Amino acid sequence: MNALALNRDALALVRKHGFILWLTLAPLIFLQIAIALIDHYFKPLALLAQMGSLLLEGIIALGAYWVLLSRLNIGCDFTFKRILVYLIAAVFISVAASIGYVLFVVPGLLVMLLSVFTPLIILLKGEGPIEAISSSVTLMKGYYLKSALVLFPVVILMALANIGLVSLMLGLDFPKWLADGISHFISASLALYIPVLLWVMYQWLQENAPSSEVFAQVNDVILQKSDSP
């Protein structure tokens, strides 16, 4: 698993499909920004805003894959049921990650890493929340560290770029609400690169990582040998 090669392939997809991907999801991104600002500045509506934001995150997460796969002529079902399934999975992931962060931080990061393919698996295969999380973990078996080395630098670079942009705008005396809005817009737009990179990684893992069926067959052979005299 070569991080540079995977990012090169992802960037090639972004150059070809990135504008359509962003244009399709831009209304949802702007709506998410508005909800985030409401949550921050209008506290009486905070709970409603957070619920709306959670729903939008699910739609955007699956919508990004749906747009990309549609452009690649790969069939998938983008339905409310699958959005709901992903939101349920996201709750399980968030609870597990939160517990991990409280303990020693690293377990929380590990939970987030192992579950990254959950939305893609739900969209492609229609699996349930727990099943999709399990499939994501199985898919990455043997490539946990390498997957982390592909994903985490990209996430860290995006976070640093966002922090730098906010600091620059505040240093130029931008109103805080405007700086927050621009920051949300930039970070949400840049975040659309992540599904593209994950799709490239998913393809690579499907081609190179042993599937759960292969593991099951190997285990059966081991058990048969251990039972034989």
Rank of each mutant, 00 (worst) to 15 (best):
G142Q: 07
I60S: 08
L223P: 00
M1E: 02
A46Q: 14
Q203F: 00
F19H: 04
I20L: 14
G126Q: 02
I182N: 01
R15F: 12
V137A: 13
N162W: 09
M140Y: 04
V196A: 05
I60N: 08
L28I: 06
V111Y: 03
F19M: 12
V155N: 11
V154T: 12
L223F: 06
G108P: 05
D39S: 14
H184A: 12
P175D: 09
L84W: 07
V154D: 03
F78G: 02
L190A: 15
V214C: 00
G181I: 03
D180Y: 12
L54M: 14
D227H: 13
I74S: 00
F174P: 05
A191W: 11
A191Q: 13
A34N: 01
I83F: 08
L68N: 02
A49C: 05
L72V: 04
E127M: 12
A90N: 14
P107L: 02
D227N: 14
A49N: 03
Q203E: 13
V102Y: 13
A34W: 10
K16Q: 15
V137F: 15
L25C: 11
N162F: 08
I122Y: 04
A148L: 15
I182T: 06
M158T: 07
A216F: 01
N7Y: 03
Q224L: 10
L103D: 01
V85D: 06
R71P: 00
P119I: 10
L28V: 08
A26K: 02
E207S: 08
Q206W: 00
V155C: 08
K43L: 12
S228R: 12
D173W: 09
L31R: 01
V14M: 15
F92A: 11
V95H: 07
L151F: 14
F117R: 03
L11I: 14
V150T: 09
V85G: 01
A148M: 12
L87M: 15
A161L: 15
L192E: 11
E57V: 13
